[in-house]
Design a binder for these strands. Structure first.
Lengths: 263, 263
DNA sequence: TATTATATCTCGGGT
DNA sequence: ACCCGAGGTATAATA
């Protein structure tokens, strides 16, 4: 049986680290470095980060992350890199990571290294996300009565101009209806997005459609915008929507509780 | 002299790991775990991730990240957590991380652990970002002639309705001008944002202002929108803007080169 | 490749 | 606490 090879190096010298890291990177291993460094970035913007202790992760596809000891976001990063070069310069181990498009570069100047982990991770796990906007849209497609009695949906993802309206249908009086769905609180921005569809549709067909923004909650200024732009909105209960989902065989107890507690 | 205490544990048993992790978390140390796990998430949405090898990072403020071996984004995360609980259940080490607002929970089920790193990282480094939208706005505030000859800027971040216009001024003919700035390619969305300000301003004052979208590049459908909405746009050269910056003492050689190569 | 819209967006700033 | 907008947003889908 193959033994998993995850290697750990404690307090390596910078020249030892140079060899470890360059070897790991060239064989596309995941590399984690805990140490003290400063970081420069230049590309779409430019940044400087002075000395401090951080975690650097170089992933198997070249994704590059520099994490400070707090917070969700990396302080510097590259989503993917084509070139990763390492070299020693005096008392610093320099890692340069270059992204092709857009052309961007990170330089990490390591002054001290506490730990390095290298190894090939195998992850064939399946990731499934539930209750995203797509799923809500599909449920409302099947159950338009949740938006308005008498509403008939004709099309999902209807192309209007350059964009796509979430749902398109006709109401009880045969007026076309364009529907924009948000799974989180809808802001003025969502109302403007809907307005764009309504306006483009009218321009293209000569018929003025209704525009309905559907969301669990809507900000007051979005409602104000709706009045100004001649749009409508409908607050929906996610818990109710959730009950109409197709894959009822899947257990979602806690999400249900979560939604219940919100309402 | 205080010796830096970064601890590394190799191939711990799950019960050893339980103790290591719970101790590290309770003393607010940074914790990195490399191992095999599955992950559930429930909160604003819900997800399942089946077994695979991953890197788990618990930061000193409770930020919680589960990273797969590739890609920029964590597959599961919490920006900050108030409760982190660990326990053994049969042959699994379970880490539960709860966020208060919104109420969200992650469960990590570890089946094998290769390495754990724990320790308090000290990072007082200063992070400076150059050439963000704020800096561009400030330069254009000082040099409105870069947008249009005869333009006078009256106000930065002028509140119009519930939002804020980047710049507000009057042109050579004393017509009010609302300016929206983008540091990247401006889309239809930016044009709609500007339209909202223009419309709100007109509603509030009775005076129809000009609206100018300022960006390095503008998509064709944004230009189309401009025609429809009666707005204007001005493409600006970031390299040129860059020359007007105040802190010229700072070296920015490569960004300059970057911008030069783009134009 | 460019464009569009979503995201468990995160984060900071303002009211 | 809500709201608003930027972000080196990243990412997926689509023309």
């Amino acid at each position: 049986m193959m033994v998993k090879l995850i290697k750990t190096y404690i307090n390596p010298t910078l020249s030892e680290a140079l060899e470890i890291i360059s070897k790991a990177v060239s064989s596309k291993e995941l590399t984690i470095i805990v140490g003290e460094c400063s970081v420069d970035y230049q590309g779409r913007s430019e940044s400087r980060l002075t000395l401090g202790e951080r975690v650097i992760i170089i992933k198997q596809d070249g994704a590059f992350l520099v994490h400070r000891p707090t917070g969700y976001s990396p302080v510097n990063w590259q989503p993917a890199t084509s070139i990763i070069e390492t070299r020693l310069d005096k008392d610093k181990l320099i890692i340069m990571a270059v992204r092709r498009k857009p052309r961007e570069t990170i330089w990490v100047y390591l002054t001290r290294i506490y730990t390095i982990i290298t190894g090939k991770l195998v992850d064939n796990g399946e990731f499934i996300m539930y209750m995203d906007e797509h799923e809500i849209r599909d449920i409302l497609y099947e159950h338009p009565e949740l938006i308005e009695e008498g509403l008939k949906i004709i099309e999902k993802e209807k192309k209007i101009g350059e964009g796509y309206a979430d749902l398109f249908g006709i109401d009880a009086r045969n007026t076309p209806v364009i529907i924009e769905i948000k799974r989180v609180t809808a802001t003025r921005e969502a109302m403007l997005q809907l307005y764009n569809y309504v306006q483009t549709y009218q321009k293209q067909t000569g018929v003025k459609p209704r525009g309905i923004l559907v969301a669990p909650t809507i900000t007051s200024s979005a409602i104000e915008s709706a009045y100004k732009l001649g749009l409508e909105w409908k607050e929906i209960n996610l818990q109710k929507i959730w009950k109409y989902r197709k894959n009822k065989n899947i257990k979602h107890g806690t999400l249900f509780d979560f939604l219940k507690n919100k309402r």
